[in-house]
Amino acid sequence: MDKFTTLTGIAAPMPLVNIDTDMIIPKQFLKTIKRSGLGKNLFDEMRYNSDGSEIADFILNQPAYRDAEILVAGDNFGCGSSREHAPWALLDFGIRCVVSTSFADIFYNNCFKNGILPVVLPQEAVDALMEDARKGANARMTVDLESQTVTTSDGQAFGFDIDPFKKHCLLNGLDDIGLTLEKSASIDAYEKTAAQSRPWV
């Protein structure tokens, strides 16, 4: 997994609330057995007409936002299914950070497994960042994980909270499984005790 330290890039405004995982990556693209290549189908049904041509006014089709690396989105981003294809598609497109007032639980966790930083901020802060994102490609936002801040193009900074363990893993690009396997002895011990106390499991 790639590290996430600091990112300065174009932010695309998506004020819609409840952007669900079916919008982020519709199910016809879940038939893959790979993780890569989903970026072209990110937001597929909002982004393309049924004949495959682009819907010109969709935000990521607008020239200013084609290279966006940050999304500023409405409440409850990523609700719906557990599909990790949603963060895979975002990542493959080039999005490394999503800012919202709230995220659905599973999506939020999935982001961290893929080097994407989901930033939760209060409504006023998201409103200010949404305004900044609307300025287009010349306005670059900066997200700094170490200092836990998002800074607008004109220097207004907002601090955000994040779980220290998740921060540590993301900053260092750590693989969870490797970390857990270091605790194998604890797992062995647990299984031994459980075999006595809950043998039917």
Partner: peptide
């Protein structure tokens, strides 16, 4: 009982545990 993403599926397959708060 709850849903998990594919990275966590791999984590559970390999370790029979999940990292949770």
């Amino acid at each position: 009982a709850h849903g998990i993403g594919t990275s966590e599926v791999e984590h559970v397959l390999a370790t029979q545990t999940l990292i949770q708060k």
